[in-house]
Measured scan of single mutants.
Amino acid sequence: NQASVVANQLIPINTALTLVAMRSEVVTPVGIPAEDIPRLVSMQVNRAVPLGTTLMPDMVKGYA
């Protein structure tokens, strides 16, 4: 099972992602792969992401 990126805190809309804001977890459905965490740092989310939410490619500006 592949680990996905999960919000480690509430991430407000247009907030730049940080290492502290993300964690890796095996979840269903699978979201952005955990190995992409370094690439996600400083990218912005295009919606509010609640704690525990799996990050999907369409939630991160410039990711997809």
Rank of each mutant, 00 (worst) to 15 (best):
V6N: 03
Q9E: 14
T53R: 09
T18W: 03
M59A: 07
N14H: 13
L10G: 09
M43P: 03
A3K: 09
P12E: 11
N8E: 04
P57F: 07
T54S: 02
L40W: 01
V45Q: 01
T53C: 09
Q2F: 13
Q9T: 13
T53V: 12
V26P: 05
Q9C: 12
T53Y: 12
D36W: 10
V5Q: 01
R39H: 11
V49P: 03
A64D: 13
I37Q: 01
R39F: 12
I13G: 09
P38T: 09
Q44R: 13
M22K: 00
R23E: 05
N1T: 15
V20E: 15
V27C: 07
T18M: 07
V26Q: 09
L55F: 07
D58H: 12
L10Q: 12
P38Q: 11
N46D: 07
A3R: 09
A16F: 15
L10A: 14
G52M: 02
L19H: 08
N8P: 02
N14L: 07
I13T: 12
G31D: 01
Q9D: 08
P12G: 07
V49D: 03
G62V: 02
P12C: 06
V20T: 15
N46I: 13
N14R: 06
Q9S: 09
V45E: 04
M43D: 04
R39I: 14
T18P: 03
K61W: 11
Q44S: 14
A7L: 05
N14S: 06
R23S: 07
E25D: 11
A21P: 03
S24N: 05
V6A: 01
L10R: 09
P50E: 13
V26N: 09
I11S: 01
Q9M: 14
I32M: 03
P50N: 08
T53H: 12
L55V: 08
V41E: 05
P33S: 09
V27K: 06
V45N: 02
L10P: 14
P57Q: 07
R39P: 02
V49Y: 03
L51G: 12
D36M: 11
I32H: 00
M43G: 03
A16K: 14
G31H: 01
L40M: 04
E25I: 06
D36C: 14
V20R: 14
L40F: 00
V60N: 04
K61E: 14
P33H: 11
T15L: 04
P57G: 07
A3T: 07
A21Y: 15
P29S: 03
A34R: 03
T15I: 06
A7N: 02
L40D: 04
A34W: 06
V49T: 03
P38I: 10
S24T: 11
S24G: 11
G52I: 00
K61T: 14
A48T: 15
P38G: 10
S42E: 08
K61F: 10
L10W: 11
I13Q: 12
G31R: 01
Q44W: 14
A7R: 01
Y63Q: 05
R23V: 06
A34N: 04
L40Y: 03
T15K: 08
L17M: 03
R47A: 09
V49I: 15
P29N: 03
T18F: 06
V5F: 02
S42N: 13
T28G: 05
Y63H: 05
R23G: 09
G31Q: 01
R47K: 10
L40Q: 00
S4M: 02
V30D: 09
L17G: 04
V27T: 13
I37G: 03
P12H: 12
L19R: 10
V30N: 11
P38Y: 11
R39C: 14
V60F: 01
T28P: 02
P38L: 13
P33D: 05
P29M: 04
D58L: 08
V6E: 01
N1D: 15
Y63N: 05
E35G: 12
P12W: 05
V27L: 03
A48W: 11
R47T: 11
V27A: 05
V26T: 09
V6C: 04
Q44E: 11
D58P: 06
A21V: 12
M22F: 00
M59L: 03
L55M: 07
P57W: 12
A48I: 14
K61R: 14
S24K: 14
G31K: 01
S24H: 08
G31V: 01
M56Y: 06
S42K: 12
A21W: 05
M43Y: 09
E35F: 12
N46T: 13
D36N: 13
T54D: 03
P33N: 08
T53E: 11
S24Q: 10
T15N: 08
I37S: 02
V60Y: 00
S4Q: 01
I13W: 08
I13F: 10
Q2N: 15
A7H: 00
V27H: 02
N46P: 02
P29L: 05
Y63I: 05
Y63D: 05
P33Q: 05
T54E: 03
P29D: 04
R47N: 05
I13A: 14
P50M: 13
P50F: 09
E35M: 10
V27E: 03
T53Q: 13
D36S: 09
V20N: 15
L19S: 07
P38C: 15
E35H: 12
L19Q: 07
V30H: 13
D58M: 09
G52P: 02
V41M: 06
K61C: 15
V5R: 01
S4L: 01
T54G: 00
A3D: 06
R23F: 05
P38N: 14
A64I: 13
S42M: 11
